[in-house]
Simulated scan of single mutants.
Amino acid sequence: MPETPPATDENARHAAKMAKRKAAKDRALEGKTAEKGLVIVHTGAGKGKSSSGFGMILRCIAHGMPCAVVQFVKGKWDTGERRLLTGHFGDLCQFHAMGEGFTWETQDRARDIAAAENGWRKAQELIRDPAIRMVLLDEINIALRYGYLDVDAVLAFLAAEKPSLTHVVLTGRNAPEPLIEAADLVTEMTLVKHPFRAGIKGQPGVEF
């Protein structure tokens, strides 16, 4: 059978369309020359908030950028990210698990507040260090939601003391509105479907 001739008209239209798109993208990027340490918020009911934060930490490691993690909830849980970062990248990434577990597990508000305050003190110490380029505050939004930490105090610290090129990532559901307003980058994870509702428990490699 003879070969089908190429769809030259369609290819030409596609090439012209992509050329216009590239020109528009190039124009948009022309003025984007500033560098800034970002305040980044991952929130919402969907899965992926911490996972995305840890993905950014791995990018920092790949670039040789010192970074740090403070976990406000998971505490002594044996998670895959903790194993990986402490076991292989401890020279570039500090890892501090400061939480006591979810509030419904501890059932002790005073203990939860003390753990959150302890985690925030460590976070401030790490953020102040200009050598550390990214600090992930994992699940801090939970502490903010329950009032274990004062959101205004957190924002005041970030505005006054965060070095200009340091990125700070705050994860967890129900990020307070003042934090969302102050942040440079906010992503809301939307829950569409979750296996937990079908009776499937959290599994290694997916949940932890």
Score class of each variant (00 low, 15 high):
141 N>Q: 00
58 L>M: 13
121 R>G: 11
47 K>F: 09
93 C>N: 02
136 L>R: 05
78 D>Y: 00
156 A>M: 04
80 G>Q: 06
140 I>K: 02
162 K>A: 11
97 A>E: 13
170 L>C: 15
114 A>T: 13
96 H>Y: 14
47 K>A: 10
79 T>K: 07
56 M>D: 02
143 A>D: 08
84 L>P: 00
52 S>I: 05
149 L>G: 12
63 H>L: 09
151 V>N: 06
40 I>S: 02
167 H>D: 15
145 R>N: 13
91 D>F: 00
126 L>Q: 08
38 L>A: 11
156 A>F: 04
50 S>L: 12
71 Q>I: 05
116 A>T: 02
112 D>L: 04
115 A>C: 13
64 G>F: 07
83 R>V: 08
121 R>Q: 15
159 A>H: 15
149 L>Q: 11
167 H>M: 06
78 D>N: 09
88 H>M: 08
122 K>G: 01
60 C>T: 05
115 A>R: 07
96 H>M: 08
128 R>I: 12
106 T>S: 15
148 Y>M: 15
77 W>Y: 11
146 Y>C: 11
143 A>Q: 07
141 N>P: 03
102 F>A: 12
132 I>M: 02
105 E>G: 03
137 L>N: 06
167 H>Y: 02
80 G>W: 04
67 C>A: 12
106 T>L: 09
131 A>S: 14
76 K>F: 08
59 R>L: 02
104 W>C: 10
84 L>Q: 01
156 A>V: 03
149 L>D: 15
88 H>C: 10
50 S>Q: 05
86 T>M: 13
40 I>D: 01
138 D>E: 08
62 A>D: 09
111 R>F: 11
97 A>C: 11
123 A>M: 06
120 W>F: 08
95 F>T: 00
82 R>Q: 10
56 M>C: 05
138 D>N: 10
114 A>E: 14
140 I>G: 01
103 T>F: 15
127 I>R: 12
42 H>P: 06
89 F>D: 04
146 Y>M: 14
118 N>H: 15
134 M>W: 00
88 H>I: 00
96 H>I: 09
124 Q>G: 09
121 R>W: 03
103 T>N: 14
75 G>Y: 07
154 V>G: 06
134 M>F: 00
138 D>F: 05
128 R>D: 15
41 V>Y: 03
140 I>Q: 10
124 Q>H: 07
139 E>S: 05
71 Q>A: 11
85 L>I: 13
143 A>M: 11
132 I>L: 13
92 L>A: 07
170 L>S: 07
131 A>N: 11
153 A>G: 10
126 L>C: 10
52 S>E: 12
119 G>Y: 03
70 V>I: 14
43 T>G: 05
79 T>R: 09
83 R>D: 12
53 G>I: 10
83 R>P: 01
51 S>V: 11
158 L>A: 02
88 H>S: 10
67 C>P: 07
99 G>T: 03
45 A>F: 08
101 G>Y: 03
117 E>M: 07
134 M>D: 01
67 C>G: 05
132 I>F: 04
159 A>Q: 14
72 F>Q: 13
97 A>D: 08
155 L>F: 02
41 V>N: 05
61 I>H: 09
60 C>Y: 04
95 F>V: 14
99 G>Y: 05
119 G>E: 04
